[in-house]
Simulated assay, not measured.
Amino acid sequence: MNKDYNKISPKAAISAEMVKTLAQKEIQIPSDIPHGDMPGDKIEIGESHIAKAKTVFPKLLEELSKVTTSNPYGRAVITVCGGSGVGKSEIASLLSYMLEQSGIGSYTMSGDNYPHRIPMYNDAERLHTFRQSGIRGMVDGGAMNAENYKIVKNYQELNDDANADHVKEYPWFASYLDAGKKGLDAYLGTPNETDFDEVDSILAAFKDGADKLWLKRMGRDESTLWYDEVDMTDKQVLIIEWTHGNTDFMKEVDIPVLLNSTPQETLEHRRSRARDGKVDSPFTMMVLELEQNKLMAQAHKAKIIVSKQGEIISYDDYKKLMGL
């Protein structure tokens, strides 16, 4: 889709001298700044986000200096990744704004525009994958019979079939739960769920000097799915905010930035934001756990790791924090 494009004129790389100068520059952040391109996405930037972005920015400039020197068009691709509620959209928007204010053109795109299915259908596919795998697991584990199926079906109707507490009463239920979780893991954050090839082709075109890119927009229903042609003439940096920004299924990312949150911190955040006092369903918690496991497995590739408290930490410190 992005193969037929004109190329920009080569841009100057971000030099070490520029890094030194820009790192000392005080950038004022207004209350309303541009944000990513996910339709209907709402972000609320707070003081903690601003503080975190300002901590990351000097280190990011250093990494950009290395990358833009080796790209003939002086370009680089950054991803801001992390789990639920860690502030990916806010931090990506802030970093993009700070780059723009420093004279380095930047655009923020959302990876959430690139699943194969719109959110409603993708959520349904996740649940279907878990349940289909779980039922098959009961067969393979010798637990399938009319009585057990009736119990599972009842839990499914209650949306409680991902609840591990049921194993205490029904030990055979582990065959359903374990197989369902394994099947779901093989779907989440993989090419089965997301078109990583399309994203990687966009990144490759950007780094190859494309002056324009066709970027996907995905809303909540089938009538809000389209493409915009976006002018990249003055852009040196493309930022992707996305849980899966550090995945092994993409090869064109230069600087992964991991915003870390421990499982406990993620849980506390979601509880604090729960509406009407409702906590997440067992299935949602399973999805979050599997996504967290993938983030941990990919963390060694991150160029910058930021703790929930806003400190830049080493990979060794990250492993200790996460109990690895």
Rank of each mutant, 00 (worst) to 15 (best):
Lys3Tyr: 13
Tyr5Ser: 13
Lys7Phe: 04
Lys7Thr: 15
Ile8Met: 05
Ser15Asp: 13
Lys25Gln: 13
Pro30Gly: 01
His35Gly: 15
Met38His: 03
Gly40Tyr: 02
Asp41Glu: 09
Ile43Lys: 05
Gly46Ser: 15
Glu47Tyr: 02
Glu47Ile: 03
Lys52Gly: 05
Pro58His: 04
Leu60Phe: 06
Leu61Lys: 10
Leu61Gln: 11
Val67Met: 03
Asn71Trp: 02
Gly74Asn: 07
Gly74Phe: 01
Arg75Pro: 07
Ile78Trp: 03
Gly83Val: 00
Glu90Lys: 01
Ile91Val: 02
Ala92Cys: 04
Ala92Leu: 00
Leu94Ser: 14
Met98Thr: 07
Ile104Val: 14
Ser110Thr: 01
Ser110Trp: 00
Ser110Lys: 00
Asp112Thr: 05
Asp123Glu: 14
Ala124Trp: 05
Arg126Gln: 11
Leu127Asn: 09
Thr129Gln: 06
Arg131Gln: 11
Gln132Thr: 14
Ile135Cys: 09
Arg136Ile: 10
Val139Cys: 12
Gly141Trp: 04
Gly142Ile: 00
Ala143Gly: 03
Ile151Pro: 00
Lys153Asn: 12
Asp160Gln: 01
Asp165Gly: 04
His166Val: 08
His166Arg: 08
His166Asp: 06
Phe173Arg: 02
Leu177Asn: 06
Tyr187Gly: 07
Glu193Gln: 07
Asp195Ile: 00
Asp195His: 01
Phe196Asp: 11
Phe196Trp: 04
Asp197Leu: 09
Glu198Trp: 07
Ala210Pro: 02
Leu213Gly: 15
Arg217Tyr: 06
Tyr227Trp: 09
Thr233Glu: 12
Thr233Tyr: 15
Asp234Ile: 01
Gln236Arg: 09
Val237Glu: 12
Trp242Lys: 10
Asn246Gly: 08
Thr247Cys: 06
Thr247Asp: 08
Thr247Tyr: 11
Asp248Ser: 15
Met250Asp: 12
Asp254Cys: 00
Asp254Glu: 04
Val257Tyr: 10
Gln264Ala: 11
Ser272His: 07
Ala274Phe: 09
Arg275Gly: 15
Asp280Glu: 13
Glu291Val: 04
Gln292Met: 05
Gln292Arg: 08
Gln292His: 12
Lys294Glu: 06
Lys294Ala: 13
Lys294His: 05
Met296Thr: 14
Ala297His: 08
Gln298Pro: 02
His300Ile: 02
Lys301Met: 08
Ala302Asp: 11
Ala302Trp: 02
Ile305Gln: 10
Val306Asn: 05
Ser307Cys: 10
Ser307Gly: 12
Lys308Cys: 13
Asp316Pro: 01
Tyr318His: 15
Lys320Met: 07
Met322Leu: 06
Leu324Ala: 05
Leu324Gly: 10
